[in-house]
Simulated scan of single mutants.
Amino acid sequence: MMAKFAKGLLFGAVVGAASGLLFAPRSGKETRQKFVDELDEWTDLKEDFTDKLDHFKESAQALQVAAEIYIDPFIEGLNRDIENFNFQTEPRIAQINEQIEKIQSELPEMPKEN
């Protein structure tokens, strides 16, 4: 999808530049030279864009490889940490609930407000 967009953008830019040069009020020789200069400039821009796109693709592939290497172990470690946390907190929560029940049973009943 990105490649189609880039090609369309490049094509539109070239056609627009060529149209502007062809309809400019210059002599034929000046117009041809201007066209050649612009074409060289656009060629350089296209090559630069292609190089950057290739670099982006390489970076995206490297990121994907790194993600495949590190994400699964990270998730497994995180799940182990959560399980350990739950294992440690469940008895404490039970103790707290027992204390709450004990306090509630020892408190006198409060009159309800209407």
Score class of each variant (00 low, 15 high):
E41N: 15
L21Y: 00
E41D: 14
E47S: 08
L9K: 07
D40I: 09
Q95G: 02
L39W: 08
P73D: 03
K57M: 06
F85T: 15
F74Y: 15
G28Y: 06
K57Q: 12
K4L: 13
L21C: 12
I93C: 07
V65L: 07
K46P: 02
M1E: 05
V65G: 00
A13W: 04
E90M: 10
Q61V: 09
A17C: 05
Q88V: 13
R26M: 04
F56Q: 06
K46M: 09
K52G: 03
W42K: 08
S105M: 02
G12S: 00
G8Y: 00
E83W: 02
Q104M: 06
I82R: 10
I103T: 04
P108M: 01
F49C: 06
Q104F: 02
N79Y: 09
M110K: 05
I96N: 04
N79S: 09
F49M: 15
L45M: 14
K52N: 12
V65T: 09
G16Y: 04
E113S: 09
D48H: 12
N84H: 15
Q88L: 14
L78S: 10
P108C: 02
F87M: 15
E76M: 08
P73L: 10
L107K: 07
Q61T: 08
E90H: 11
G8K: 00
K29M: 14
V65A: 05
G28E: 14
N79T: 14
V65S: 04
A94L: 07
A17T: 03
E113I: 04
P73C: 07
L10M: 06
F5L: 11
N79P: 02
D81R: 15
F23I: 10
E101T: 07
E109Q: 11
K52D: 05
A62C: 00
E38T: 15
F11C: 03
Q61A: 13
E76R: 15
T89A: 13
D72W: 04
G77K: 13
V65R: 05
A62I: 02
S59A: 12
E38L: 10
F87T: 15
K34C: 03
D72Y: 02
T31Y: 01
Q33A: 14
S59I: 04
E109G: 04
D54S: 14
R80C: 06
F5Y: 08
A24K: 05
D81H: 14
Q104G: 00
K102M: 10
E38M: 14
N97M: 13
R92F: 13
G12H: 00
D81A: 14
G20Y: 04
Q61I: 06
K4T: 11
R80H: 13
I96F: 12
F35E: 06
W42N: 10
D54N: 14
S59N: 11
I96K: 10
L22A: 12
D72A: 12
R26N: 03
D37P: 01
I69D: 11
I100W: 05
L53V: 08
K112T: 09
E106K: 06
L45D: 13
K52M: 08
L63N: 06
K4Q: 10
M1Y: 04
L53D: 10
L10D: 01
F49R: 12
I75C: 05
H55G: 08
G12R: 00
I103A: 08
E106H: 04
D40E: 10
M110S: 05
